[in-house]
Design a protein around this nucleic acid. Sequence first.
DNA 1: ATATAAACCTACAAAATTAGTAGACTAATA
DNA 2: TATTAGTCTACTAATTTTGTAGGTTTATAT
Lengths: 135, 135
Amino acid sequence: MLSKKAQYAFRALGHLVEKYDQGPVLISEIARKKKIPLKFLENILLELRKAGFLESKKGKGGGYFIPRDPAKIKVAEVIRVVDGPIAMLPCVSLYFYKRCKNCDEKHCGLHDIMEGVRDATLNILEKKTLQDLVI
Amino acid sequence: MLSKKAQYAFRALGHLVEKYDQGPVLISEIARKKKIPLKFLENILLELRKAGFLESKKGKGGGYFIPRDPAKIKVAEVIRVVDGPIAMLPCVSLYFYKRCKNCDEKHCGLHDIMEGVRDATLNILEKKTLQDLVI
DNA sequence: ATATAAACCTACAAAATTAGTAGACTAATA
DNA sequence: TATTAGTCTACTAATTTTGTAGGTTTATAT
């Protein structure tokens, strides 16, 4: 399951995609429109900005905006930044790999199964982008 | 990510698949061989038994065993019992569905994306069985 | 019968993670 | 220089995860 934080992040990003190229959007507007706790959203947007998915502008007329083509920002990337690993086991994660304690990956059936699941999942999430958030 | 509990569950089930049709296996043996905390494992096996994936026998010569063809018990079923939902969003879960608050599933891009992920994932996990845990 | 073996069961506790809040700080604009 | 709006750190509260304790029940062997 995606965390609430990740779900909020996608809701906010969806809003910003709709306002793409229309200048900065206030955090408070996003919070109100999308019913997201304001201070929580602040932290989330900050994190997304530090990861390069968003840019911001301070002071009057400021706010957040998507700084590049939303169709170039992959859903998989966003999940990794906000929630961490996508895979169902550490030992099959591409970006957060940790070897299994007490189990040999070469002879572990679960490992192989979850490798398959990871590939099937990433096959979708690496293709879908922020643009796909709005219909 | 699968919880530790689920990972332990699969490790234990793998051991029991290897001992399939060889009579009951002691919890303590599984715990020792698979390096799983004994009392935690007790609870896990109990849960698996109540879900019908295992049977047990008390007293001397007792223990746990798989009561039917391991190739008939799906990995997806086990995950649902131990960890709950497999889907990445409540609103696309088949067995643990909850509608989205503040978002219309008909016009939610994330919903559609995660529906695809769910299908791709289940396509694997509904086919793989306990038999696939051992290689 | 009785001792022993082994699973059963409930409840609890500790640790980790997630969700959300507070409040002072910095930068941009008017 | 007042106001607007994002930045940042740290904290708290809630929930979930990961275990543990300890007595109860049931089956077997002597």
